[in-house]
Structure formats: C-alpha cells, structure tokens
C-alpha cells in the first residue's frame, strides 16, 4: 500500500468524519485538556470513573484527522475497562505508533482499531497527533 493510504486508512477517515463519543458528559469525575502546539490540535476529555472502571467517556475539540480519529477510537476501546487495563493499553498504543510492536495476525477484535495507527510511525511529525488523546487520558486519570 502507498504510505499515504496506509496512514489514512478508511477506518481512520470514518472516525474522523464521524467521531464516536463526541460531546460532553453530565457528571464527569475526571477531565483534562491536551494541546499539540505544532498542529494546533486541542482535545478536551471527560471521564466517568466508578470503582476504578471507566464507565463513560466523551471528548471534544478540534484537530487533524489523526488526532481526532485516535481520540474517537480510544474512547471506544477504553469504555468499560479498568484503569489498570487502560494504562496498559496506552503503553501498547505508544509502541504501535513508534513501530515498536508487530501488528498481530488477528488482534482481539476490540483492539483491532488501535493497529490502524501502525502506519503513523512512517510519519514522525505526526506521532504526537496520534498520541495526544492518550496523553490527555493519562493526565485526566492522574487527578483523583
């Protein structure tokens, strides 16, 4: 595949055009803002955490296709997961975008979409776009 098509895969474009979990929560327990000054990406993330589990999550903000799709996919993946699991997922995601982990033949279906970001490591200037949502998530979880 051309690198550009590998980066902007159909799934990514779908999430960009129609992001999931976009908006605000009634009663977030955690929230954080993230900025990527290079791109001007801005994300606001709201979480509802109960018993160390992320029961709901929404994000808002403006950004490029990569940052927005990444945020959309992240919110899908983390919903219902424990904070511990989510932290491991963040580490996995960082490895994916840096090209430090192989794309499995058949990733478990709920993680599958994380691997569409494996194309990002060919675009070093865009790695920060992909990781913005995850860094913001970690910052949000640091508050208690």
């Amino acid at each position: 595949m051309e690198p550009i098509r590998d980066l902007y895969q159909q799934v990514l474009l779908e999430h960009y055009k129609h992001p999931h979990n976009y908006g605000h929560l009634e009663h977030p327990t955690h929230q954080a803002d993230g900025d990527n000054p290079l791109c001007g990406d801005h994300i606001h993330l709201e979480l509802q955490v109960e018993n160390d589990t992320i029961v709901d999550v929404k994000f808002s903000g403006m950004g490029c296709a990569i940052s927005k799709a990444s945020a959309s996919i992240m919110t899908q993946v983390i919903k219902g997961k424990s904070i511990e699991e989510v932290k491991q997922l963040a580490d996995l995601f960082y490895q994916i975008v840096k090209g430090e982990t192989d794309v499995p033949e058949a990733p478990s279906s709920d993680l599958e979409e994380l691997f569409i970001f494996s194309g990002v490591h060919d675009f070093p200037t865009r790695v920060k776009c992909a990781t913005l949502a995850w860094h913001t998530l970690e910052n949000a979880l640091k508050q208690s």
Binding site: I4, L7, Y8, K17, C39, G63, C64, A65, I66, K68, F123, T125, R126, C129
Partner: peptide, 10 residues
Amino acid sequence: YTHPHDIGTI
C-alpha cells in the same frame, strides 16, 4: 473537510 496538517502530510 480536511485539517491543514493532513493536507501538509499528503
């Protein structure tokens, strides 16, 4: 329909 940075990358 596109963010300037995506234009830049393409």
